[in-house]
Design a protein around this nucleic acid. Structure first.
Lengths: 110, 110
DNA sequence: CCAATAGTGAAGTGGTGGCTTCAGTATTAA
DNA sequence: TTAATACTGAAGCCACCACTTCACTATTGG
């Protein structure tokens, strides 16, 4: 529970940065890419990309693997489910509240 | 398009902050709340809440209305759909890429 | 009217985070 | 072996942002 909470925290924080979101988007379209391949069109240093990759990997949004001297990066699509689960939870709570309000109104009708 | 992009930006940034996410969560469970009612259990000043509310309102995650001297706040559930749309888009792209890879493999099989 | 309540605006502070440079390591190519 | 490539670690810089305090306005209850 608490672990899940902190993971929600980290995922939202991770995707709150445009560059990191761009990395995820890019990895979704083009397949596995190296760090330098990611850096090139983004206008940042490879060092910056490495740092972002660490963040994305920590919250399991991206999986990387070092083969030889190049780090191969790919999305971990299941990582996004944390996001959908959070959104769905909000929706459920919201609807539940509406239902409860409806029940109260019905009651006062009787 | 670009407007949508910047809105995605703002929504992710808005929800990247734990306090703001707590506000959204709390408003989903308990109905409309005042700024001070939001501040009380969060351990922050009412001023801080006001600032957060402005951010949440700017990206249409929350709707507030000042009645008398109290600002009544409620969630705008449609605001979260931007989030689900983004996640779905990533999933679609990812699956499309897998399909394309499959097609290539099929081709080389012939 | 007076006091209490609810919120707002401005300004300042501290911390975090994204980015850079630079100096290094490990791998690959010639 | 030498040179080039691909990345990594450390350290520093700077901008942003969450938060505070303080002074103020607007509303409401006695």
């Amino acid at each position: 529970m608490i672990a899940a909470q902190t993971n929600v925290n980290r995922i939202f924080h991770a995707l709150g940065d445009p560059t990191r979101r761009a990395i995820v988007e890019r990895l979704s379209v083009r397949g596995p890419l190296s760090a330098s391949a990611l850096a090139e069109p983004m206008g940042v240093t490879v060092t910056a990309i490495t740092q972002h990759l660490r963040v994305l990997e920590d919250c399991r949004l991206v999986r990387t693997e070092k083969v030889g001297r190049v780090r191969s990066c790919r999305v971990e699509p299941s990582g996004l489910s944390v996001l959908t689960r959070w959104v769905d939870a909000q929706r459920t709570r919201w609807e539940r509240r509406l239902d409860a309000m409806g029940a109260i109104l019905d009651e006062s009708d009787e």
